[in-house]
Amino acid sequence: MQPFIHIDVANSEEVIPLLDARSRPLAGGTDMLPLMKEGIVAPERLINIKRAGDLRYIRADEDGLHIGALTTLDELDRHPDVRRDYTTLAQAAAEAASPQLRNMATLGGNLLQQARCWYYRGDFHCWLKGGELCHARDGRNEYHAIFDQSPCVAVYPSDPPAALMALEANLRIVGPQGARLVPVAEFLQPPSAERRTLHTLAPNELIVEVHVPKGPSGSVYLKAMDRATWAYALASVAVAANIRDGRAHNVRIVLGAVSNRPIRALAAEELVEGQLITPELARRAGETALAAARALEHNHYKLPLTRNLVAQALRDIMAG
């Protein structure tokens, strides 16, 4: 890890003037420190925002849910309102990482987590690190994308953002020009030649709040892992819907760990919209959701897995 200057700030206002291309905010540190230890990022200044008390809150009101960016995943998982009305988010937070990491990791930082691809994290100057080649594309790619969206086939690793997308959440982002509100679905974008990150936050900006509109009647998050706990998703699905008269309305289906970003399964949503979701329809929705997916050499399993998860999540949401 390169040496750096460490600056403690007391509130969010102090942060913005300090942010630039050579500095990084430090919140939970659970991804920033590994990235720095691996030499993938080497900021000259680390702005410790953890003491900014004005960014750590969960407020539920008629407008929905307001979550300060420094709220930890643990706080999210344990909050009674989140558990009751925004179940998919609480479940996604609970399924992420380990208890200690959830104690440390913040929702803002979780949105900004970089790819866990083993080439990106390893000794390879891969495309996502600014190189020429995505090594995973022709290398080992069992944990990689089945929806191809950029030269890089790493998947977006975080759990809660997929749930946030299903809940149509927005981010409040501040920068030198003031605040902007952006849907999570727009904030998370595949990397591009000019921007080799899985998000669109500018170096001089900070996520300050996540706003989740008033929740639908039901939501669920399903995550498949290759051990019982504490693993990145092999695939995940977040579903939110209003169940009225036994039918599903305003259905949102989001697929996680299948691409550079969580993916809305729009055709599958359309298929089940306003319907009584039978096991058969759920199965078909799974197939529809994966119709455009293409496996790489080592991840064929992700097709049946993600199909299964979509179908299971729809069955679960109908079962309440």
Partner: peptide, 11 residues
């Protein structure tokens, strides 16, 4: 016997 291998066997 990982999930990928089980799913491929089931498939």
């Amino acid at each position: 016997i990982t999930p990928p291998r089980v799913l491929e066997a089931l498939d």
